[in-house]
């Protein structure tokens, strides 16, 4: 009985030291079996269920990082758009403060003649000039922000969709052996 046990143990030990070869790999035999090994047929991988056996979902950490980055870009783009909008509104206010109507009002208040070297007149002119620059830059920033937000948002949606449809594998030891957990989300 004990002899049988020791034989079984030896056989198991021998099996443990045997190199685990993948199909297509040829082990170098010290005893000149290289020729035989070369003639041996090379087996192709056959995926179960006829699938392609490709990667499913990739590294979840990398995916989460990408999603976080896309989210941050969306927020940055939206902030830029808001800043541009506020600047454009400020430009609009400046435009009102430097409008021809205000110049006409000043003219009316001064017996229908614009006062010469007058700070109020010069302020209206300065406001009108500044309004053009502020409004143009505000609108430009707003457009850039909107484009960045739209692109980042679409990327974020796509990445979230990818994560949702990815598969998750997990192996866990249990009392009676091991459990394989396979989850497909879509």
């Amino acid at each position: 009985m004990s002899r049988q046990r020791s034989r079984a143990r030896r056989a198991l030990a021998a099996a443990a030291v045997l190199p685990l070869l993948l199909p297509g790999e040829v082990a170098a035999q010290p005893g000149g079996d290289a020729e035989l090994a070369a003639e041996a047929p090379v087996l192709e991988w056959t995926h179960e269920g006829g699938g392609t056996g490709g990667r499913t979902g990739g590294d979840p950490h990398a995916m989460n990082k990408k999603i976080r980055r896309a989210g941050a870009t969306t927020i940055a783009g939206a902030s830029l758009a808001i800043a541009g909008g506020v600047t454009a509104i400020a430009g609009g206010v400046l435009g009102y403060l430097g409008s021809p109507g205000r110049l006409k009002q000043l003219k009316q208040d001064n017996d229908y003649v614009l006062p010469v070297d007058d700070p109020k007149r010069q302020q209206i002119i300065a406001n009108a000039r500044m309004a053009t620059f502020v409004l143009a830059s505000g609108v430009s920033v707003l457009v850039v922000g909107v484009i960045i937000t739209a692109v980042a948002r679409s990327r974020l949606k796509k990445l979230r969709e990818q994560r949702r449809t990815s598969m998750a594998f997990g192996a866990a030891p249990t009392r009676g052996g091991a459990a394989l957990h396979w989850e497909v989300r879509f």
Binding site: G92, Q122, I125, A128, L135
Partner: peptide
């Protein structure tokens, strides 16, 4: 917005054309 800004600038230039002035800032 862009058209309004451009028109405001043009309109003010027309408004100031031929008006009395003493310094460059008046125009």
């Amino acid at each position: 917005a862009l058209v309004s800004a451009a028109l405001a600038g043009c309109s003010l230039a027309d408004e100031l054309d031929g008006e009395p002035c003493a310094v460059e800032e008046d125009c």
